[in-house]
Write a protein that binds this DNA or RNA. Structure first.
Length: 437
RNA sequence: CGGGGCGUAGCGCAGUCUGGUAGCGCGUCUGCCUUGGGCGCAGAAGGUCGUCGGUUCAAAUCCGGCCGCCCCGACCA
């Protein structure tokens, strides 16, 4: 993409409404624009990040055996009356009427709808287990939306629902998601720690929140330091096998959010191993048994022909929230520092002198070579001074900056700067692409 | 929902107390100059001062209603 053509409105100053760093940087770097309280439009650069996060989530869900569907945002009130939640949910649910005066709602979650889809499509224990997910916009009319996309009213969420014949099966499903979540967040460059959670209004008796450590996090968290160093990506995962030992490895060390915190247990940990920090919830998984399947009559025929109410679990990842969460966890004074896996572009070519034929030619050549290798590349060919380009580039946080100017070029060198470390190396022009691709 | 704050040009703000021609910085546009970290000079465009009503000869400014946004708390992916 040529930056001179790109819709990328960056801001030099902080918008006054944005108080936390991720919100400020998302506005300044031209990722989003607010349209109402807690509702945002995604601009090209932000959308690319959102799509990358979605892609990782999707890949890990598929690998763990979940199947993607897509349910609508608008649901009928009758569906929610069936589970008894239409009246229970309260004003957080956005209720609307269609032209026929029928009561509808903008879905805050999809337990009811998925249960009906499952109920009508699956009749035998032979079809179990099933795990269905979708990535869809939700609306919760929060009392107090804030912190940009971290707590919006409209937000993109991956949610899925597992169906098993019995509790043991449901726990196997739970464990698969547990491991898939560890991998998902790790791939985004995040340290996400599973913490025993309160099951709250969704109900059930087994639940973990995945918390990203960040100084600006909303909640206080307490855990064993060893959890931070564990590396799930180094493990080979067999989703068909028994994942319980792996799950135990992550859950045996102490980790709890403020509301579940057990001070005495925490103090059992040797002092040097304790970690009291702040965190952002980016995922939440629940086993909730028959809470929905029972009232909504989601039953299958068992091996002996008996009717069995299925055991369910639900699993959520805040996809749009993750954009903010990643920035909270990865930024510096100059701007965003994107992990490569979610970066809107992997490489940015900084053309210091676009009207210099040799420089422009070298940039175009690099650009084409990166494209040929399938590398996402942004070419800053704008006719502005170098200072502005450097500032914008650091602000939007592209992992690799390839800096091409007349001085370096005359010496046959091109500078490659790593956004995260600030390291610079000078390379001959013909080695730049192979160094990064 | 309780408490607090704010709405003036694309962004950041002054002006409001004490009513009288709507301003500054950044950004934008034009020209020159400059070109390795938001350069310089000259010129220009851009605002029914959130909105509705009231007071007044006169309202960004005083009074009232409404709308919107932000922050703290309780609640939440």
């Amino acid at each position: 993409m040529r930056m001179s053509q790109y819709f990328l409105p960056t801001l030099k100053e902080n918008p006054s409404e944005a108080q936390i760093v991720s919100h400020r940087l998302m506005l300044r770097a031209g990722l989003i624009r607010q349209t109402s309280a807690g509702i945002y439009a995604w601009l090209p650069l932000g959308l690319r990040v959102l799509r990358n996060i979605e892609r990782i989530v999707r890949e890990e869900q598929d690998a763990a055996g979940a199947q993607e569907v897509l349910m609508p945002t608008i649901q009928s009130a009758d569906l929610w009356r069936e589970s008894g939640r239409y009246d229970a949910y309260g004003p957080e649910m956005l209720r609307i009427k269609d032209r026929g005066d029928r009561e509808m709602l903008y879905g805050p979650t999809n337990e009811e709808m998925i249960t009906v889809l499952f109920r009508d499509g699956v009749k035998s224990y032979r079809d179990l287990p099933k795990n269905l997910y979708h990535i869809q916009w939700k609306f919760r009319d929060e009392v107090r939306p804030r912190f940009g996309v971290m707590r919006g009213r409209e937000f993109l969420m991956k949610d899925n629902y597992s169906f098993d014949l019995d509790k043991a099966g449901a726990i196997r499903s739970y464990n698969r998601m547990f491991v898939a979540y560890l991998r998902t967040f790790a791939r985004m460059g995040l340290k996400a720690i599973p913490m025993r959670a309160d099951t709250g209004p969704i109900g059930g008796d087994l639940s973990h929140e995945f918390i990203v450590l960040a100084d600006t996090g909303e909640s206080a968290v307490f855990c064993h330091k060893g959890l931070v160093d564990k590396d799930i990506l180094a493990r080979t995962i067999a989703y068909g096998g028994d994942l319980q030992p792996l799950v135990n490895e992550w859950t045996s060390l102490y980790a709890a959010t403020d509301e579940m915190h057990d001070k005495a247990a925490f103090e059992q940990i040797p002092e040097g191993e304790r970690l009291a920090a702040r965190g952002i919830e980016v995922g939440h998984i629940f086993y909730f048994g028959t809470k929905y399947s029972k009232p909504m009559n989601a039953v299958v025929a068992g091996p002996k022909g008996e009717q069995v109410t299925v055991e369910m679990g639900s699993y959520g990842i805040g996809v749009s929230r993750l954009v903010g969460g990643i920035i909270e966890a990865s930024h510096d004074e100059a701007g965003i520092v994107w992990p490569e896996s979610v970066a809107p572009f992997k490489v940015a070519i900084v053309n210091l002198k676009p009207d210099d034929g040799a420089v422009a030619g070298a940039c175009t050549k690099l650009y084409d070579a990166f494209k040929a290798k399938g590398v996402e590349v942004l070419h800053d060919d704008r006719d502005i001074r170098p200072g502005g380009k450097f500032a914008d580039m650091d602000l939007i946080g592209i992992p690799w900056q390839v800096i091409v100017g007349p001085k370096g070029l005359a010496a046959g060198k091109i500078e490659v700067k790593n956004r995260k470390t600030g390291n610079r190396e000078e390379l001959p022009a013909d080695q730049v692409v192979s160094r990064l691709a």
